[in-house]
Amino acid sequence: ITIHVNGVTYHFDNPEEAEKFAQKMAKTYQLKMEIHNGEFHME
């Protein structure tokens, strides 16, 4: 699972971890999250 946050790329093997991380980042930084081709993009 690949997550892009403001141009920084994070890779996770565990989908649950990826989702937790994505939600935490979105909440902490008030980010808008989109999913493209199974990759999370946040800005």
Score class of each variant (00 low, 15 high):
F21R: 00
E19H: 13
K24L: 13
Y29M: 06
Y10C: 14
T9E: 05
N37H: 09
H36K: 12
E43L: 14
H36V: 12
Q30D: 08
M25E: 01
G7E: 04
H41S: 05
G7W: 13
P15D: 05
L31S: 04
E16G: 07
F12P: 00
A18Y: 02
N6L: 15
G38A: 04
T28F: 14
M25K: 00
H36E: 06
N14T: 08
G7M: 11
G7S: 08
P15T: 09
V5S: 02
I3R: 01
K24A: 09
N6V: 13
K20F: 08
I1V: 07
K32R: 05
M42W: 06
K24P: 00
Y10I: 04
Q30S: 04
V8A: 09
V5W: 10
K20A: 11
K32S: 13
E39D: 06
D13I: 12
M25P: 00
K27W: 13
Y10A: 01
H4I: 07
I1N: 02
L31N: 07
K20V: 10
Q30C: 15
A18P: 00
E34L: 12
M25C: 14
E19P: 00
G38H: 05
K32Q: 13
H41P: 02
F12C: 08
F21H: 01
F12I: 01
Y10S: 00
V8E: 08
G38S: 03
N6C: 15
K20E: 09
M42Q: 03
I1F: 08
I1K: 05
Q23L: 11
E17W: 07
Y29V: 05
E16T: 08
V8Y: 12
G38R: 02
P15V: 11
E43I: 15
A22Y: 07
T9H: 09
E16W: 10
T9S: 10
T28P: 01
A26S: 07
F40L: 13
I3E: 00
K32M: 13
K20N: 07
I1W: 12
T9P: 14
M25D: 00
E16M: 10
T2F: 13
E17D: 08
F40K: 03
F40I: 14
T9G: 09
H41G: 02
P15C: 15
E39R: 04
G38L: 06
A18M: 04
N14H: 06
N14L: 10
L31G: 07
P15H: 09
A26C: 15
N37Y: 09
M33K: 00
E17T: 08
T28S: 05
K24H: 14
N6D: 09
Y29E: 14
H11K: 09
H4M: 05
Y10F: 11
F40Y: 12
E34S: 12
L31T: 04
T9W: 05
A22T: 04
F12V: 01
I1H: 03
T2D: 09
F12D: 00
G7L: 12
F40W: 15
D13N: 09
H41Y: 14
T28R: 14
N37Q: 05
I1C: 14
V8G: 05
E39A: 07
N6Y: 14
Q23E: 09
T9A: 13
A26L: 11
A22R: 08
E19S: 10
M42I: 06
T2N: 10
I35G: 04
E43C: 15
A26W: 14
K20L: 11
F40D: 02
I1A: 04
E43Q: 11
V5H: 03
E19C: 15
E39C: 14
Q30V: 03
E16L: 10
K24S: 06
E39I: 10
I1M: 07
P15N: 07
T28H: 13
